[in-house]
Amino acid sequence: MALQKNSVRMLCAGALVCLFFASSVGAQTQEVPPSTPSPESELEALLKSYQDRIPTQNAIITASISGSISLTQDPETPSAHQAVTFTVSSVLTDLDRATITWYQNGVLKEQGKGKKVFSTQTGAFGSVSTVSVVVLTTEGVLVTKRSSLKPLDVELVWEADTYTPPFYKGKALPSPGSDLRVFARPIGASGADSSFVYRWKVDGKSVPSASGYGKSTATLPGLFLGGKTATVEVSIASLDETVRATKSITIRGVTPRILLYEDRPLEGIRYGRALGTTAVAPGNEMTVRVEPFFLSKDARTNGSVLYRWTLDGGTVPTVESSGSGLVFGEYGTHRLTLFNDGSAQKMVSLGLSVRSTASLFSSVNKLLTVSLGGKPFSDNGSF
């Protein structure tokens, strides 16, 4: 009986221990709600975060001096084998007292106090050279600047949209009212012509419509009114602007020039020999053709150019027969045919005036004295 009581007591004691242990564990694992920070602590944390972002005095001085030092080169767009001068400058620190070291392609070239200028020479087209300058200021700030030398040139070729007759070996020249096309070709560039940005100018004024990426050809209308000259300039640059070049060309406009040629039925137009101030017809008939050199192609075909013929100072009649033994054909055009219906030789003074209805240029005049033979006798002895 006593043994049973002791067993009961031990079981109760164990149960109490287990209950106490379980309650202790539950108390430890119970989630504690977070405490809400006070406004004062939040303000202190915010001020501390801003204080951490404020640069020190030394950092401000270093950044200011470093930003004030610049490296320039002259010329900005050098060609191949051309002298280039580099200059380092600053508005905040005295570079005359600074230690300046110059490197080219990693090789030390010059070093010393106040060496603000360095001269070198570019290589061949397509070559790349890097110039670096290291500046140690009296404030103890170390600054490095770099520049790349990539010699590039631009070839400008132009063509005028003007008329020249067949077999003419010269260049078509621009005239009032004509379009001018200018082609830019980079020399010494590794990329294609279309991989550059082109900026076109005429007489110093930008031409936005002709400028842009890949626009290596510019069509420029109406530059030569009054026969003036025009200066066309193009600046090209790679997309990252590490390669740049500028080129300009001055082009002079001309007034259209007219020449007269004989047009024979069997031989055609005798382009090999222009008529001068006098001409002798091979018989009693002669066809004269006008060739307007350097006339705008549009003006030549759209009817804005008029041909006015005169005979001995008077206007050529609009009818075929003049009543004086001469017959004209194709009045008002670039061809005119003369016939001598008489038996005697005739000398006539033929004049021509070419003008533009759009007032693109002043009238261009030509005078020709023609000797026409008499009409040959027929088999029955009549004229």
Rank of each mutant, 00 (worst) to 15 (best):
V370R: 00
G373E: 09
S7N: 13
V131P: 08
S248T: 10
G191H: 07
T277K: 11
L71Y: 08
A2F: 05
S356T: 06
G325K: 04
L16V: 13
G329A: 15
Y261K: 01
G140D: 10
R300P: 05
S178G: 06
P174Q: 07
D298R: 07
A184F: 11
T120C: 11
V202S: 11
S235E: 15
F21S: 09
H334T: 02
T369Y: 10
A2W: 06
T333E: 10
K228E: 15
S238G: 11
S129K: 10
R244P: 11
V91N: 05
S68Y: 03
R185D: 14
L225E: 15
F294V: 01
P34H: 12
D153I: 02
G114Y: 11
Y168L: 03
V280F: 04
L266R: 00
R199D: 10
S23E: 08
S343H: 00
N380M: 01
F21K: 08
Y198V: 01
F196S: 02
V84G: 05
K115M: 15
Y50W: 14
E44N: 13
Q111L: 12
E267T: 04
K150W: 06
R181W: 07
W200L: 00
V32C: 12
S89C: 01
T278Y: 06
D193G: 03
R273D: 14
K375Y: 13
V8N: 06
A27D: 08
K169E: 08
V290H: 05
S64R: 12
S24C: 08
E44M: 14
Q111D: 12
L19K: 08
S119E: 15
S35A: 15
P165G: 00
P39N: 01
K150H: 09
L43Q: 07
K201A: 09
V133F: 08
A45V: 12
L239C: 02
D52F: 07
E241S: 11
A245P: 02
M347R: 14
I269H: 13
T144E: 15
S190G: 15
W200K: 00
N105E: 07
V8L: 04
I258E: 05
M347H: 06
L3M: 11
